[in-house]
Amino acid sequence: MFDRLSFPQPWLSWVLFLTWQILSDGVSGGSVVLGLILAWLIPQLTHGFWPERPGFVKPWRMPAYILRVLKDIVVASFSVAWLILSPRSPRPAFISYPLKLEHPLAISILASTISLTPGTVSADISDDNKTLLIHALDATSDQEVIDAIHNSYEKPLMEMFQ
């Protein structure tokens, strides 16, 4: 009974509540009440779809990671823009990336980061969650791309989740 009244995913509830405050015109009594209802109702209804509670070990490292990724996205866009506009045709490659992360949420964050940064898009993941298929727009060598991703993104995520 008390389970029904609780917030099974506090993070999701916070995000929903804050999003509702941003969407409504200014914070008022009504928007707070409705936000609370939504923050309770939506996690309850979608509870069955979340296989396990995502567990951050060190959530305070997230802002630094996001800032770094944002910086990389802007820098990466320039290199992609240069590749698109230059007359020579790029050398695309499919690369199998061996994952060291195990947490599903960490893997999906890594995959999203890969898609947004330098000339790589994550295309698929193997059934055993051990390998990520990456498409690189312009790769000189597979190992170079793998090392770059491992050092700049996977390591910080490993520290955050393990």
Binding site: S89, P92, A93, F94, S96, D124, D142
Partner: peptide, 12 residues
């Protein structure tokens, strides 16, 4: 895929 692509997609 374009001809000079290294490697190929998976077939799962």
């Amino acid at each position: 895929t374009v001809k000079d692509t290294e490697g190929g997609p998976w077939h799962q």
